[in-house]
């Protein structure tokens, strides 16, 4: 097609060039992360490393430094995702299968909940946690984070469930299966990809969440990587940029891997559709 007219070829070249340039602008701050993490004398500048080293990774790979925080992140995110998915599947089932006066107001409330900026409620949540004695309690924070991701999870789950044909369940009902039995044996297995998308979506959000554990978890032994990486950044007068970058990358890897998994394996636009388009 480009051979058809030189003017069109030029326009197409300009488009591609513009994209490459914008892409470069976007990639430079990220390049710093990678380069600084393997540089023997890292700074805030993006430069070709003076010497290649893995010393920064070695320095941060200690139990208290990264392994415990990453383990805490794993606990917090996995716990949040499991609670959210369980509760969301249960809630989505009646919303998707039965007509009821209750459905519409509940779905409106859910949608409203997806919009509520969580940073706005952190001050009251903190004082609520103080009152209830939940401060620094990993389980309570897990349930709180599950609650904040529930509206979006229920919304996505209901949309996935709506696309599972109801005829199979009707056959099971005729055979005398209970509603919970059909949910467990028929609906859940059929919507496994949808459940995986919701699980990963919630996991990624919880893994990256800084503000909530920053406010609600006080003892360093319980803090997830997002918070301990921040104290790493703030603690010392001069920041150890190489180690900061190395820790940042280690901490980001699981999220990147999961994102690739979702966008390649289960279908990126499919996931987005459940979340955005309704």
């Amino acid at each position: 097609m480009n051979l058809a007219s030189p003017r069109r070829a030029a326009a197409s070249l300009a488009r591609n060039l513009a994209l490459v340039l914008i892409g470069l602008c976007f990639v430079v701050p990220l390049a710093w992360l990678v380069l600084a993490s393997i540089d023997t004398s890292p700074s805030q500048r993006t430069e070709v490393p003076e010497g290649f080293t893995l010393a920064n990774y070695q320095a941060v790979l200690t139990f208290d430094g990264t392994l415990l925080p990453l383990w805490n992140s794993t606990l917090l995110s996995t716990g949040t995702a499991i609670v959210t998915v369980l509760v969301a599947v249960l809630a989505a089932y009646p919303l998707s299968r039965y007509q009821s006066r209750f459905n519409k107001p509940y779905l409106y409330a859910i949608l409203f909940g997806t919009c509520l900026p969580i940073t706005a409620i952190m001050v009251p949540v903190y004082s609520l946690f103080v009152r209830l004695g939940y401060l620094d309690n990993l389980a309570a924070v897990t349930f709180f984070m599950a609650a904040t991701s529930l509206p979006m999870a229920i919304w996505m789950m209901k949309n996935f469930m709506d696309s599972v044909p109801v005829s199979l369940e009707e056959a099971a009902w005729v055979d005398g299966a209970s509603a919970m039995g059909t949910l467990r044996r028929i609906v859940v297995p059929l919507m496994r990809p949808g459940i995986a998308v919701v699980f990963i979506f919630v996991f990624i959000q919880a893994w990256g969440n800084f503000f909530v554990p920053f406010i609600l978890l006080l003892s360093p032994a319980k803090q997830p990587a997002a918070v301990s990486i921040y104290s790493f950044f703030g603690q010392y007068g001069t920041v150890a940029y190489g180690e900061l970058a190395a820790f940042s990358l280690l901490y980001s890897l699981p999220v990147i891997a999961l994102y690739v998994l979702v966008s390649r394996g289960i279908g990126g636009s499919f996931a987005l559709q459940g979340a955005v388009k309704g």
């Binding site: 710093w32 990256g208 800084f210 940042s248 999220v255």
Partner: peptide, 26 residues
């Protein structure tokens, strides 16, 4: 390249942006 900045955890993106805009930065 574009999606990478979006996928990264917010705090990591914030560090990268900090190093980019710092006085002695990129």
């Amino acid at each position: 390249a574009l999606v990478a900045a979006w996928v990264l955890p917010e705090i990591v993106a914030a560090f990268a942006a900090y190093a980019y805009f710092a006085d002695d930065g990129t």
